[in-house]
Design a protein around this nucleic acid. Sequence first.
DNA 1: CGGGCTGTGTAGATTGATCTACGTAGTCAG
DNA 2: CTGACTACGTAGATCAATCTACACAGCCCG
Lengths: 355, 355
Amino acid sequence: MTRAGGSITIEDVARAAGVSRAAVSKVIRDAYGVSPAMKARVQAAIDQLGYRPRISARAMRGASYTLGVEIPNIHNYFFPKIIDGAIEALTDTPYQLILAPTGAEDVESPEAIDALVDHQVDGIISIGSRVSLDYLEDVADRLPLVTIGRHYRSEGFDTVASDDRLGARLAIRHLYELGHRRIVHATLSASLPAMTMPDTPHRIRLEAYRAEMARLGLSEEVIESDPTEEAAQAAGLRWLPGIAEPVGVFAAHDELALGLLGAAAELGRGPDLVSVVGYDDQEFIAAEQDPPLTTIGLPHYEMGRWAMEESMKSGANRSTDTYLMPCSVVPRASVGSPSVDINDRRRSTLLHQAA
Amino acid sequence: MTRAGGSITIEDVARAAGVSRAAVSKVIRDAYGVSPAMKARVQAAIDQLGYRPRISARAMRGASYTLGVEIPNIHNYFFPKIIDGAIEALTDTPYQLILAPTGAEDVESPEAIDALVDHQVDGIISIGSRVSLDYLEDVADRLPLVTIGRHYRSEGFDTVASDDRLGARLAIRHLYELGHRRIVHATLSASLPAMTMPDTPHRIRLEAYRAEMARLGLSEEVIESDPTEEAAQAAGLRWLPGIAEPVGVFAAHDELALGLLGAAAELGRGPDLVSVVGYDDQEFIAAEQDPPLTTIGLPHYEMGRWAMEESMKSGANRSTDTYLMPCSVVPRASVGSPSVDINDRRRSTLLHQAA
DNA sequence: CGGGCTGTGTAGATTGATCTACGTAGTCAG
DNA sequence: CTGACTACGTAGATCAATCTACACAGCCCG
């Protein structure tokens, strides 16, 4: 094995092994009609020359043996876990994985998916993409598509998402059971794609919030902000000064939660005044905060693996379905009970930090 | 524009515009020999049909117009910034970007680079890869290669890295100027690829640590651990109990720093006993810690952009060079002065947290 | 008026794999 | 002994682009 790739073609291998190109091709693809003897001879030639099939050439007729993952915003820290799950599903298969990142934010952006289509991948996994359902259906007409994090039930593509309705209920009940009766929902500005499209996690969480508050007989209250921690902090600084009594906040994702906690800290307050529950349990972001963030944990790794397994299925054995993953509260220290004496709580938090 | 990709070929466009395939190809590539009139007619047909060239077919003869980035470990949180810089450099060029992740850790793993070569990318950016220099030279023989984070000066490929010698000196001097005379270096286990290869950032930082300590007339002391925060914490828990006097630690990267701080916290101590300087200034990891981590900041975004610009150059106008990026100390609260009264320092830290 | 440009467009080869269709040899049943 | 069937292997078309070589028209100049 001299090196990977190079200019060694199937022709060279065929010549070296004394067989035809088609024979080599059959060996590579593990296709029918190859004697063990020939297979061994060809394999030896492949190894000796360091031959690797060119994906471009393969894709011209057959499959590219490549699966693509669209990453609309590489800053979301749960992507790594999803990718890990996807890679895990790929081991011992002939498939490769490529990722297509999209730079722009806050707009519908099909470029990443387009790039994957241009590369003739055999399947696409779209993570929390900001493209329209029509567009996704179009793409799914041509190749297996799995979306992660959207709730639309399509005939054309698979969907895996966390059970956001359940997660929202869990977050609200967690606050309710601690004694909170004023529970606010922090979510994204209504004009962002994540809120204008009907099947996004944030939309579902908002709807579930409304439904659950109605069920509990509480009145709803929503804070909106742009999707960054800074924006959420700014929104918190506008909102918090009017707050006198302890309040519970269910934040639609961890960065928002952090922004609000940051705003509280800037005003010299903490969970004694604002109890915040986040969403996603993003590594580092949630656990290593001051205070550590109580949040909703999702099985990101499993979502990635499931999505990859589905996207590898093609043809007849493929049936589209929707899979809602379970989720659960990850209790940490960013929530307090409104009935406990504030100074007690304050002191115990400091002790916890010093320990 | 009906949809992206599909089964519309250059043939369809040529028919629609009433010209030859070659004419359409020229228009797409903006090549010589096209009248404005024909260009307009062809462009109209392209837009109307929603035609997109297939990368596989292009790659068979010409270029794939695709650049690849190898990501050996997607968990490193400075990748996003590098990728952002790379994407920025790509706007308004005909090039696309794909990423190839590698799953395995702690071993030499060329598979991500191989995957990119298989895809016939026009250039490769290798971020902190764990492959041998021989392998990189082989790859560079065939296409433009830019490595990020390695210090080897090659004839065949470009290199951009942070000035790790400078960074190490800055970290050590920062501790020295605060009064520290016992300065320990926390780095990776000597058996890991990051330490066995001669040109990795961690090797350079270690060497620079030794040189600087010698220059200052101080004796060196090194703690090794595996590359995770947990491993560093465990190492810290073995080491710290023997420490009585304040000590400075220069950690080779932020996770290691965090692990040591975590170990200190577990023993009820903080910067009063162990002053830790990290390296990389990774978003969230460094700034939002308790205590916030003093670390060495690197221009990740610029590194990504520079690398991408270099990798787009090919042919005659290409000359390989090595670019060392400046870096600087980002002072936060994870370091203390050994001469200041411990309780004073302790109290002010707590006040800072409560504020 | 013919030879040499220049500007525009086309025909056809080319790229490296797959895949279909078919040929050949060997085996086995009737 | 022959026809059918199976196992193995090959020739050649094919995929969708690029790229080379060339044709043709119009124009200028000697």
